[in-house]
């Protein structure tokens, strides 16, 4: 089972199918085109990325001309120069993941447990959860910019309530970036948690109550542990895209304390034509995410997600 499988495979259970004796080679025909595609357009490009990350400028060449080399110093240089953006990306992604868990879990719980048995209502509520995806991602982020703008309702209200000092703003702050990330990836948190809670047998909850457990204890000892696969899948589905995102940081952030690594990679590629640095930062981001994801899955005891 893969991460996203938790979204769709709630019912299937992945039972071992009977082995086929006839058509021994049929699977090669079926797999061939797709796997060749993934090798050509994923494995080979990642190889190209690794190679590019070690390139050096052509001596005496133009800007943007590089030649193959094994210049490992590209990595140390890139990290030395851009470590704040790398760390900030992971920090913002972490905050957005926690925020969307806090908002998304009760939402998924309401749909899966409170609306249980009312199939049409559940279906329509799930449509509402994914409905933001039907509008443009960039326009939604621009809408956030408008919502958090200095003269808009939210800031005026916060000023009036003295929750936000009069000389402070929300737009172009780390808060704006994290709230944009949270907003944009929240449905990815809700769907897998819904799938996990949907499978939860309500008799287990009744049993908890019969055994004199308070609702809180039942939640802590029954509901939460059983929804763990959904929580793990959801946190990964939010954390991974959030860590690499740069749309929110560039539309909602500022130039000093909100720069994320995706922005740096984009700028190195397109503004400075510094391909080796951009490539080494991409490799650092990819490796760091794979290590974090691996450790997280191991720690949370849900290896079967992979």
């Amino acid at each position: 089972m893969s991460i996203a499988a938790a979204l769709g495979e709630s019912v299937s259970g992945d039972s071992a199918p009977p082995p086929r004796r006839t058509a021994q080679r049929a699977h090669l025909v079926l797999l061939g085109p797709g796997l060749i595609y993934l090798v050509l357009f994923f494995v080979v490009p990642v190889g190209a990325l690794l190679a590019t990350s070690l390139y050096v400028p052509v001596p005496g060449g133009d800007v943007g001309e590089y030649q193959p080399a094994l210049h490992w110093q590209n990595y140390t240089d890139a990290i030395a120069q851009f470590w704040p953006a790398i760390l900030r990306s992971f920090w913002f992604a972490f905050l957005a993941t926690v925020a969307s868990l806090v908002i998304g879990y009760p939402l998924a719980y309401a749909i899966a447990v409170r609306a249980r048995g009312r199939k049409l209502l559940q279906g329509l509520l799930l449509v509402l959860v994914v409905a933001p995806f039907f509008t443009s991602f960039i326009l939604r982020t621009i809408a956030w910019k408008q919502i958090l703008a200095d003269d808009a309702l939210v800031v005026t209200l916060l000023h009036w309530l003295h929750l936000l000092p009069a000389d402070e703003r929300l737009t172009a702050t780390p808060f704006a970036v994290v709230s944009g990330l949270t907003y944009n990836f929240l449905p990815f948190m809700v769907l897998p948690i819904f799938a996990a809670l949907e499978r939860l047998d309500s008799r287990l909850l009744e049993a908890g109550a019969d055994l004199y457990a308070s609702p809180t204890t039942t939640f802590r000892t029954v509901t939460w542990p059983l929804s763990m696969p959904g929580v793990v899948a959801g946190t990964l589905l939010v954390f991974i895209p959030a860590a690499g995102d740069y749309v929110n940081a560039s539309l909602l952030g500022n130039n000093t304390n909100t720069a994320m690594v995706g922005q740096v990679i984009d700028a190195r590629f397109f503004k400075v034509l510094d391909y080796p640095t951009a490539a080494s930062l991409s490799v650092v981001l990819m490796v760091a995410i794979l290590l974090l994801v691996g450790a997280y899955i191991r720690r949370s005891g849900t290896e079967d997600l992979l």
């Binding site: 991460i3 996203a4 190679a51 490539a279 995410i289 994801v293």
Partner: peptide
């Protein structure tokens, strides 16, 4: 699984490098 767990910016950078 790997393309799904790779941030888009890395996918984009890898394809562009290629």
């Amino acid at each position: 699984f790997l393309p799904m767990s790779t941030p888009e910016v890395v996918l984009g950078a890898a394809l562009l490098a290629q």
